Computed example of a mutant assay.
Amino acid sequence: MSGAEILNFHKLKRTSCREGILKVMLSSKQALSEGEIRDNLKGHYDRTTFYRSFKTLEAKRIIHKVVVDNLFVKYALGNTLNPKKMHAHFFCKDCNSVECLNNTPIPTYPLPDGYTYSDTEVIIKGSCAKCNQ
């Protein structure tokens, strides 16, 4: 699916910045930081245009945030196009890559009475297959 198709699916106005962000993310096999995405679009958009477009895509859950720790955040395409089970993320401590583990479901956890679930995040840390070679 192209960036234009994703925006149309979500009934969002097609802008070159939004399409550019999605093109960068669609071409990557791993999650990217905001800076990595911006660097791939360097010189095309000012900071305000990029930031507003980026935040719109996040608010519409087209992209989702993966928080590895307080100083390390990456973004991946969301699950709103093809709803998937909740999934874990893998963080490689060697190359700092983050990947969605779509075939690694997150178990449900029993909660005390009166508690309601909103979200669960699982980050598995280690070394990726590439770094283990």
Rank of each mutant, 00 (worst) to 15 (best):
G35V: 08
K74A: 05
L22R: 12
F9P: 02
L77H: 07
A59I: 04
V66R: 03
S16H: 14
Q30A: 14
K74T: 10
S16C: 02
H64L: 14
K55C: 01
D69Q: 09
K13P: 13
Y45I: 01
T48Y: 14
T15D: 00
L12V: 03
T49N: 01
D39P: 06
I63K: 05
K55T: 05
E36D: 11
D69N: 01
H10M: 15
T49I: 14
Y45F: 15
K74M: 12
R38A: 07
E36H: 07
I21V: 01
R38I: 03
Y75N: 09
I62Y: 08
Y75C: 04
V73K: 08
Y51L: 11
D69R: 07
K55R: 12
K74S: 08
G43K: 01
R47C: 03
R47M: 03
D69W: 04
I63H: 03
A31P: 09
K11I: 00
F9S: 12
Y51V: 11
H44C: 02
R47L: 08
F54M: 05
K60P: 01
L7R: 04
Y45M: 13
L77V: 04
K29I: 07
E34K: 12
T15E: 09
E19L: 09
D69C: 09
F9A: 13
R61L: 12
S28H: 13
N40H: 13
Y51S: 09
I21A: 05
H10A: 15
G20R: 00
N40Y: 05
L12G: 03
C17P: 04
L32S: 08
T56Y: 02
S16M: 08
L71E: 13
T15G: 04
H10V: 09
L26S: 05
E34A: 11
S33P: 04
Y51H: 03
L12D: 11
I63N: 02
K42E: 08
K60H: 07
R61V: 11
K29L: 00
F9C: 07
T48S: 14
E58W: 12
K60S: 06
R38W: 05
K42G: 11
G43D: 01
R61D: 14
I63T: 06
K55E: 14
I37R: 04
